[in-house]
Computed example of a mutant assay.
Amino acid sequence: MRRLRITLLGLAAILAGLVTAPPAHAAPLFKAPFPCGQTWTYSHHSAEVRLALDFVRSDGGATAGTPVLASAAGTAYRYYEAGGAGNYIAIDHGGGWKTYYFHLASYAVANGSYVSQGQTIGATGSTGNSTGAHIHYEQLYNGSGQTIVINGTSLAPYPGSYNQKYLASDNGCGGGTAKYWVDTFANAPGYASATSTAQTGTLYAGTNYVFCKVWGREIRDASGNFNHWWLRTDLDVGPANQYVSAYYLSRWGNDEARDNNGTTIPNC
């Protein structure tokens, strides 16, 4: 019996030596959670756990209502926490990596939907326990907060207040000059921006090219068809680089913006 006990203990030791911790999964190449070309300042305070950063816009544009972009591709989940994060989205990037985006004014994707890097997932707001519009942003690995890394560069050491450090975004920069061909089923009114209500011209029905898309005001018909995406294009009547609603696309569905080949039109 004594010999058997020693043998079992020895076997356990051997097995323990063979068991090693699973290898760490490399992080995605995370990009800034706000649109291409914009510059935001960021800060950290002790009440924010998991090494979070708060971002506010510093380039003269409004923080409130600015699109919040996915830092990397993954599956997006929508949540609400009245006394804390407010409207927020968690994106599961796989391999144990997640990003969180708190205090959204609104959501731009369905719960459980796959999102690409640079895709608009919501609008910057101040819902929940928040004193002003900002993006509360986190990167987590296996549930533990990580120091924020953007484009492979750590943002540490964190500043304790805004306007000490700044971050310029290259997220969603693709599609500025490339053309994507789409069919429109009716003449589409053109506007100077995705939120404007003053028509600047018309894009005729037929096959047209567009450059990119942005999230804006809703266009909806009496049958319940709708779209929030707006496509930058050159109008047939009116100035260049205007916006028409993706509602007028002949194919696809609500809140979709794809070309005739099914390719998702990139963010502007």
Rank of each mutant, 00 (worst) to 15 (best):
Q119H: 09
T120R: 04
I121Y: 11
I121T: 12
G122W: 12
G122Y: 12
G122E: 09
G122V: 11
A123F: 04
A123H: 09
A123N: 13
T124G: 01
T124L: 01
T124Q: 03
T124D: 01
G125V: 03
G125R: 04
S126G: 01
S126I: 02
T127V: 01
S130V: 07
S130F: 04
T131C: 03
G132V: 01
G132E: 03
H134K: 10
H134W: 01
I135F: 01
H136L: 12
H136V: 08
H136I: 07
H136F: 09
Y137V: 07
Y137F: 15
Y137Q: 06
E138G: 02
E138C: 02
E138L: 08
E138K: 10
E138N: 08
E138V: 02
L140S: 03
Y141C: 03
Y141D: 06
N142T: 04
G143D: 10
S144K: 13
G145M: 08
Q146C: 01
Q146M: 10
T147H: 05
I148P: 07
I148F: 07
V149L: 01
N151G: 13
G152V: 03
G152N: 04
G152W: 02
T153Y: 06
T153C: 00
S154I: 04
L155H: 03
L155G: 02
L155N: 03
A156Y: 14
A156H: 05
A156D: 08
A156I: 02
A156E: 09
P157M: 00
Y158M: 10
Y158K: 13
P159T: 08
G160H: 11
G160R: 13
Y162V: 03
Y162F: 15
Y162S: 09
N163C: 02
Q164T: 10
Q164M: 06
K165Y: 08
L167D: 10
L167M: 11
L167E: 14
A168D: 04
S169Q: 13
D170K: 09
G172T: 07
G175I: 04
G175L: 04
G176L: 14
G176Y: 14
G176E: 14
G176S: 14
K179D: 04
Y180V: 07
W181Q: 14
W181Y: 15
V182P: 04
D183E: 14
T184A: 00
T184V: 13
T184G: 00
T184C: 00
T184D: 00
A186G: 03
N187S: 11
N187Y: 06
A188N: 12
A188D: 11
A188R: 14
P189L: 09
P189G: 13
P189K: 14
G190R: 13
G190K: 12
